[in-house]
Nucleic acid binder design. Sequence first.
RNA 1: GCGGGCGUGGCGGAAUGGUAGACGCCGGGGACUUAAAAUCCCCUGAGCCUUGCUCGUGCGGGUUCGAGUCCCGCCGCCCGCACCA
Length: 842
Amino acid sequence: MTDSRFATRFNPGQADSRWQQAWDEARCFEADSTSAKPKSFILEMFPYPSGRIHIGHVRNYTMGDVLARYHKMRGREVLHPMGWDAFGMPAENAAMEKGVHPAGWTYDNIATMKRQLKQLGFALDWSREIATCDPTYYGHEQALFLALYEAGLVYRRESAVNWDPVDMTVLANEQVVDGRGWRSGALVEKRKLNQWFLKITQFADDLLEGLGTLDGWPQKVRTMQENWIGKSQGLQFRFDLSDGGTMEVYSTRPDTIFGASFVAVAADHPIAQGVAEGNPEAQAFIEKCREGGTTAAELETAEKLGFDTGITAKHPFTGADLPVFIANFVLMDYGTGAVMAVPGHDQRDFEFATKYGLPIIRVIAANPGDAEVPLREAETGDGVLVHSDFLDGMTVEEAKAAIIARAEEGSWGEGKTVWRLRDWGVSRQRYWGTPIPFIHCDACGVVPVPAYQLPVTLPEDVDFSIPGNPLERHPTWKQVDCPKCGAAARRETDTLDTFVNSSWYFLRFASQPGDKAFDKAEVAQWMPVQQYIGGIEHAILHLLYARFWTRALAHVGLLDVKEPFASLFTQGMVTHETYSRKEGPREVFFSPAEIDRSGEGAKLKADGQPVEIGKVIKMSKSKKNVVDPEDIIAQYGADAVRWFMLSDSPPERDLPWSEAGIEGCGRFVQRLWRLFGQLDESADGEDKALARRTHQTIAAVAEDIEALAFNKAVARIYELTGATEKAAPSADRNAAIRALLVLVSPMMPHLAEEGWEALGQSGLIAEAAWPEVDPALLVEDEVTIAVQVKGKLRDTLTAPKGASKETLEAMALASEKVQRAIDGAEIRKVIVVPDRLVNIVA
RNA sequence: GCGGGCGUGGCGGAAUGGUAGACGCCGGGGACUUAAAAUCCCCUGAGCCUUGCUCGUGCGGGUUCGAGUCCCGCCGCCCGCACCA
């Protein structure tokens, strides 16, 4: 024994807090922006301070922590910060329900969660901690907002908005899911309000193109953003109508114009509205369209319905009078809310035409000879134009270009790019958010708050006894003098969407001067974020907004980077089986702590009777299948919990929590501790095989961590541990033990520090270097060769590395098992893969 | 409907076209102990005529000396989007 301390078990209850304190005192993890070392910015999505840390946070931050500690060991200057996405509805809900102040509630939660994060020993630079609800944060945000306003990227207009009647606020399009508020779940209403907007559409093309450069992002997320931005190119043109008016339509398939057999408008289209006046039948139809649900099932089964307005539209080439329908499948908020319908080559139009007996004309055919083949369904594929006058014989692409050119010549239409992406409405009628820094003056209009008056801080004396915006009804807060003319004016009472807060927080982490949001040169030291880790649920909202803000800030000259996150990793959820019992009509759930899972099935501890074991699903309070991180840290120690988070499941997949699993991790912590205690300074002599294994493991674990394949790194550490335990004492075994100590230090930092100290090493292992690998030891000198006969394994043999093909073939043929398998048959061919296998084809 | 991903032991999962099931969990057997905990050792895909053989990575084909891996066609599950003209 090197140290009597190894005689007792490793005690996380004492060691964890001791080393956490040591790191704090040594300020190990404070990032130095002026360091000459290469820099790494490792970032996990910052949490909303909802109350307590949940297991998903633990998994997320453990992954980032391993990376951060690893990069530090590899000699990089690492920025690994933490903060709080602290504005938002739950704080106001708490204020309404419990009568507490949102600020008090939020800061209490921050204190709790910070304490919990500290218990996990994360290598975080707490000196850069930020809370977005702090005026020193949101004041700078107001300045940035004004800078974007100056550059014309912020505007205000009256618009129909998504109004959440439960939260009593406006939601962005991105926050409406299946017609319901993403948070409240309430059916969203349309309202007209004066709203502040950010001009994200100005960057639509750039945001789309930028996706192509994001090699470090999951393809899935890139595709989701691409679909959300939704670029399409086509022709917008006008029909002359029989009632003397004109109507704009948009089509991405102008090449099929000779196949148009009717025109359709949305129920909310002005033409539909016009027809409905004095026509009860039309009015009734429009009402019916509005009733239609928006859920997946409803849309899939929704029948195509139309109402003939009696108006006709003149075809620009044939002069034919096309009937104008109000149709339930046309959307008002895409394109112009009106379409030319080509039943032959659009499935919706086909269904509609079939139902209402309208002509179905083929204008595209796979081959010119197929022009008269009848259409059984809409054909949307490629081909050549037929029945299309001057377009006949052209390809789809050629025809599109020809029609757009013709329309532009004749001034009845123009080529146009349409986006699904809309400008981002950021006004929220809430208290707990960043006040929008504007003043409304009767004489001067909308006036930006001058820089010297920033930050515009939230009043503290607010009343949550009734719903609505407390800022709006505050007795004095909004009364202010106009900065321009000095007359009595009114402060803007809307606050910014909380997604604005999270759109630039990484910049504030990188640089936090007192007089401005960030310093451009200092930010350049750290950005872009080398590795960003978070949940897939932010694939569109947060990640698109952050990409937009970074571009917008670059556009106004405040930044030099366009893409904030070089690599993105979306981690899986932590899941757990559920326990329940049917009690009458309802299902009652029990928490894992209430369950005895030791024998067959599961029993409720309280009454010893069985409960039903349900599916393994994401941990959620309603299903009670949650484990509290603080409880398990208290029971097993931070290192066991961290190790569990990294073991078994690949990090992008779901991780099923299990009691047996965490116990196994706890055992492994002790097993390593015992092994560290076996370091024997008096031992000498070589163990070449173990030395090889050690160096191979060092190299492989490094590779795995860099690839975020933590589960594989864990498996390799288990293997080296097993091999080292079995090896006889030697200098190489001591080296293996020391290597293991360092290899596990990013994952189990407390155990590693404790072992490092007990073995008499100086300083902190957190500051130590990653072990060097001897390349000579990475290659084996003997290899195992698989010997196959007709592709089936018959024998294995050991050969010197690099043995010649002839040698290997001879060795294989000498094998008795091989000879028996060949059974005297003629050998037709022998395939030799050096250092790997011999395959004899007989 | 469109797009993406995934199907491997009892479970989580390994496997640059080259020995399928590494590693962990569960389970079984044993050692130590008065006993327990802790620890250690062995076994653990299925089957059989058990020095060994056969089968086996959702199903059916194909390419190849050789396929979990590549190609074609199905089936199932998961995720995202969705009447986007």
